[in-house]
Structures are given as C-alpha cells and as structure tokens.
C-alpha cells in the first residue's frame, strides 16, 4: 500500500515506484540469493528483511552495492552495530533493538516474579537468542536469578522433554526468545502436561496465527513489542484504508509502510536515490511517517523506542496501557 500511495502522489523525484517482492523464507542462504537478485534487477531500496538471521547476511550485499536497507522487524543488535563499526552508513531500522527490549522485559520480569522461579529459553536463532540474552542480562541486573536456562530446536513437534524440565524445576514464569509457531506449541504441550506457569515472550507473538497453533492454551501469553501505532493520528488514514480492504494492519505492516515512506521522503530531501546520500538525509532530521516522527542515530537505529506489553485473551491480543 505504501508504494501505491506514494505513486498516487507523484512518486519519488518524479518517477513512479515499481515494487519487487523477495522470498527468503527466513533462511540466511536464501536471503543472500534474494539480495543478489535485487542487485541484478537494479533495486535502489530494500524494506527488509524480517528475521535478523536473514537481514544480517543480506545487508553485506546491499552495503557493498550502496543500496539503502531499512528493516521493519529485525531487532538483533548486530544488524546495525557491526556495519557501523566498519563505517557502513546505509543500514537502518524502523523497529527497536534487542538490548532496549531486553531492558523492558528483564526489569519487568525481575519485579513481577521476585522470589519466584523464572526460566529463560531461546530457539538459538539470531532473533530469539539475542532477545533472550539481553532479557537475562537485565533480569539479573535487576536482582533476578534464572532458575532454568535452556534452548530448543525450532520447528520441533515434540517439546515434552522441555516441558518436563520446566515442571521439575517448579517454574512459575517462562520467558521465551523465539517465534510464535514454536511458542504456541510449547504452551499447548505445557498445559496438556499440567504446567501452569506464566508465559512471556517478545514481538514475534504478534501474529493471529499464534492462536491457531496454541488454541486456548495461549490464553494469558504476554509479549513485549513497540507501542502500537494503530491509534496514532499519523496512521489514521492508512489504517482506515487497510481496514476498508478487509486487512487488519497488525505486527510489522505499519513499520514496513513507515520504512518505505522514510526512504521516499529522504530521497526527495537528498534530491537523489544514491544510498549514501539518502542515508545522510535520513540522519539529517526527523521524518514524518505513519508510526510517528522518526529520527535515526549514527548507527541507523531509532533515537526513540517505546515498548508496551500485549496479552493474548480469547484468541486476540491487546496492548496494555503504557505506564
């Protein structure tokens, strides 16, 4: 929709935008193939990728070719830290970072479950591990002690051994760094095995698909994510247009829209589509997007990220009020 809306307003630098879609399946090797394919097709800007494990290897190719990249979803700190350390300036996000989300998650866990048994799990992915490590760090810094730290293999079908470990350790709360399809299954099998612990996770729980996997076992699942932009004035018209099209712009839809908007505005400001010039324009001042006014630091990270808790209830999730 972002491309359609920009084209309707005259495009960028007087040119219409043509959209290419690349499917990486969250596989790092496929992400590199997608990136190389984009280079061959003359792509000047990429909004993506989704999984940190894909965004990071693809970013090497975009950086080498001077193609500006903005991920709307990849939160692993290495995505911007490593290129910035090499002097690369064409990599950005419109989402937060694991270390900031880890502060939000870890301090809340320590305060809420003081004196209780907390387990921290991850799926060994760049996203899941990154979030779990930063959450643990901040949980411990806030006085918490991890009762059980473990990993699991994503896309397994039987998590009964993991659930047994949680039961044996008398866990009261489980924090999981991972994706919804695994967390939904772990919760279902946990409830089937009589584990009543609370489940807490990160932003990858923001898909309606979670409930189709967990069923009612997903009740009460809590997850952290950026504060929703759905009710912002800046998003009002776009959200209405999505809903008129029978689509609820959940999860990363608006952060992707914002990424494309930001690139277009910066290209206009720079008067050029060259990646380095657009990057300078992005850093030169705030840009109005559907997710509000965005500014980026030297690394390409947002200068401000506000997190909120969301809780699943009867098949839907809703944001809790900000403190």
């Amino acid at each position: 929709m972002a491309v359609k809306d920009i084209n309707a307003k005259g495009g960028v630098l007087g040119k219409q935008l043509k959209l290419e879609i690349g499917d990486d399946q969250c596989d790092p090797k496929q992400a590199v193939q997608v990136a190389n394919d984009f280079v061959k097709k003359g792509v000047v800007f990429v909004a993506g990728h989704f999984c940190s494990g894909s965004s990071i290897p693809a970013s090497d190719i975009y950086a080498e070719e001077g193609i500006l990249q903005i991920t709307p979803a990849s939160t692993n700190t290495k995505f911007t830290d490593d290129p910035a350390a090499k002097g690369i300036k064409t990599i950005f996000r419109t989402c937060g970072r694991d270390d900031l989300q880890g502060v939000f998650d870890g301090t809340w866990l320590a305060k809420t479950y003081a004196g209780k048994n907390v387990a921290i799990l991850d799926d060994k992915s760049a996203y899941g591990q990154g979030l779990a490590v930063d959450t643990q760090k901040n949980f411990e810094a806030a006085g918490g002690t991890v009762a059980l730290r473990d990993t699991y293999t994503s896309k397994e079908k039987d998590f009964s051994a993991l659930v047994s470990k949680l039961k044996d350790a008398k866990i009261d709360a489980v924090f999981i760094g991972g994706y919804h399809f695994d967390v939904g299954l772990i919760m279902r099998q946990a409830r089937e095995q009589g584990l009543s612990a609370d489940f807490v996770s990160g932003d990858a729980m923001n898909s309606a698909e979670l409930w189709s996997i967990s069923g009612p076992a997903g009740e009460g699942l809590r997850f952290s994510d950026a504060s929703s932009a759905l009710n912002l004035d800046s998003a009002k018209d776009v959200v209405a247009a999505f809903r008129a099209d029978n689509y609820e712009p959940e999860g990363y839809t608006l952060s992707t829209y914002a990424a494309i908007q930001a690139w277009a505005a910066a290209a206009e400001k720079a008067g050029d589509i060259e990646g380095a010039k657009v990057a300078d324009a992005l850093r030169s001042g705030p840009i109005q997007t559907v997710t509000g006014e965005l500014s980026w630091d030297a690394k390409g990270d947002l200068t401000k990220s506000t997190y909120a808790w969301y809780v699943w209830h009867e098949g839907k999730y809703a944001q809790e009020p900000l403190n």
Partner: peptide
Amino acid sequence: EDLTVAVAGPM
C-alpha cells in the same frame, strides 16, 4: 520511468 524498490521477507 521507474525506480525499483523491494520488500524482502518470508513470503
């Protein structure tokens, strides 16, 4: 006439 932009992710 066109500028090619891209969206990449797990489709």
